[in-house]
Amino acid sequence: MQEYQRKQLLERVNKESATIGADIPDRIEVQGEEIDLRTFVFEIKRRDTVPEGERERVEQAKRNLRRERLERLEEIEENRVDFETGEEIAASIIGIDRALEALNDLRPADLEGEARRQEAMDQKRWMNFLKQALGRDDGSAGKRGGY
């Protein structure tokens, strides 16, 4: 592969907007194991949050995908493939990036509960502030500044 072609592929892969409109691959070989990547991502993403029991599985998948991305990127960086193969590898890297984005957008289930608790506490503080500001913090509606 020519140097300008290699640089072109690397630029395409490293562009921030590379994953816009990109599809998650149906199947991909990651660390020597064939996986149904699209099915896995949609199965997890469908829940919107990662249940406690699935968290380690998702984290392991993300680590494996990052490792696979690096290995594929090195194939292009070190010019070990021809341009046609490099284009296929670049497309697969962008697919991996798309899958990683989807998995990184997930929230752990316990964080969702924590966010609700935080919101409830904020609302309670706000109501206490309003009661105090309106002079109704002592339980009597008619008194002003009743400390």
Results as ranks from 00 to 15, higher is better:
Ala141Arg: 14
Glu29Cys: 00
Lys15Ser: 14
Arg117Asp: 14
Ala61Cys: 13
Leu103Asp: 09
Arg55Trp: 07
Ile28Arg: 06
Gln118Met: 11
Glu52Phe: 07
Gln123Ser: 12
Ile35Gly: 01
Pro108His: 10
Leu111Pro: 01
Leu103Glu: 07
Gln2Met: 06
Tyr4Gln: 09
Arg107Lys: 15
Phe83Pro: 05
Gly146Thr: 01
Gly95Trp: 08
Arg27Met: 12
Trp126Arg: 15
Asn104Lys: 09
Val30Pro: 01
Gly53Lys: 10
Ala109Gln: 13
Pro25Leu: 09
Ala115Leu: 11
Gly86Arg: 05
Ile24Tyr: 05
Leu134Arg: 12
Thr19Cys: 07
Glu88Met: 12
Arg47Glu: 14
Leu70Pro: 01
Arg125His: 10
Gly139Tyr: 04
Val50Pro: 07
Gly53Val: 04
Glu112Val: 15
Tyr4Asn: 09
Gly113Asn: 08
Leu70Met: 09
Val81Thr: 11
Gln5Glu: 15
Arg125Asp: 15
Glu114Asn: 02
Met1Ile: 01
Glu75Phe: 02
Glu78Phe: 06
Leu65Ala: 04
Asp137Glu: 15
Arg117Ser: 13
Gln31Pro: 00
Glu56Thr: 01
Ile28Ala: 11
Pro108Lys: 06
Trp126His: 14
Gln5Pro: 03
Ala61Ser: 10
Glu33Pro: 00
Leu103Gln: 06
Arg57Val: 11
Arg117Lys: 10
Gly53Cys: 01
Glu112Met: 08
Ala102Pro: 08
Asp97Gln: 15
Arg67Phe: 00
Lys15Ile: 02
Arg69Phe: 11
Val30Cys: 08
Gly142Lys: 06
Arg69His: 10
Leu106Pro: 14
Gly86Ser: 06
Asn128Ile: 05
Asp137Leu: 03
Gln2Ser: 13
Thr19Asp: 06
Glu52Trp: 02
Ile76Leu: 04
Leu9Gln: 07
Gly21Gln: 07
